[in-house]
């Protein structure tokens, strides 16, 4: 697999959210606005990048039996770091993302990449993989966040373009499930079409 492929496969082909359906909790919870979605995506990208790098560096030192606990400690460290940094330098983001920052620890994407990729590949590849997956996650969140904010509050990046309320249901809990569901369906449709094309 080429270096470029490692980086870009997370964008669309193996998008962690839209294709592999991992990390669903933050996807549903923080996508009420584009700003939150983007913030969450970048925070997770940071954690993915750092944890992938460190785990790949330490992969020969960590005994197999304590692999998972070690990974969890490393991931939790970076999550706590980004939590403190956001609280210090982006307090408004901290209050809107709330509990979902510490919950990056249990985002299956992070542990999943550590176990499936970083613990088996070189540092360089792991960095690319973490970055790619993180960007893929951010793209997915931003798409869902945009749809929900535009339809639900009639605004984009907090700039309101309609008077009064939008279609409220899209900002509320059910809207999260509906938008996510239809986005996954759309991605599957596009992929099946692409496959058809390459087969012919």
């Amino acid at each position: 697999m080429s270096k470029l492929n490692i980086l870009t496969k997370g964008f669309f082909k193996e998008n962690p959210v839209l294709v592999l359906v991992l990390g669903t909790c933050p996807t549903l919870a923080v996508t009420t606005s584009v700003k939150n979605a983007l913030g969450m995506g970048l925070a997770t990208t940071f954690v993915l990048l750092m944890s992938n790098t460190i785990i790949s560096l330490l992969k020969n030192v960590i005994p197999d039996k304590v692999r998972i606990p070690s990974f969890i400690v490393i991931i939790a460290t970076f999550v706590s770091m980004i939590d403190l940094l956001i609280q210090g330098y982006a307090p408004s983001l901290a209050s809107s993302l709330g509990i979902f920052i510490p919950l990056i620890v249990v985002n299956c994407i992070v542990l999943g990449r550590a176990e499936a990729f970083a613990s088996k590949n070189t540092v360089g590849d792991s960095i690319l993989d973490g970055l790619g997956m993180g960007i893929g996650f951010t793209i997915a969140l931003t798409i869902i966040g945009s749809v929900r904010e535009i339809l639900g509050s009639g605004s984009f990046f907090d700039h309101k373009f309609i008077q009064g309320d939008g279609i409220l249901i899209f900002v509320l809990a059910p809207g999260a499930f509906l938008v996510f569901g239809f986005t996954v369906a759309l991605v599957r449709y596009l992929q099946s079409k692409k496959k058809l094309k390459t087969e012919n």
Partner: peptide, 28 residues
């Protein structure tokens, strides 16, 4: 190994905590 990793993690976190302590208080 586990102890070492946990120890390093603790130290790194404590460092970040000290650095961000003032900005967090200031932000509040």
């Amino acid at each position: 190994t586990l102890t070492l990793i946990a120890l390093l993690a603790g130290v790194a976190l404590a460092a970040v905590y000290t650095v961000t302590k003032t900005p967090i208080e200031m932000a509040q």
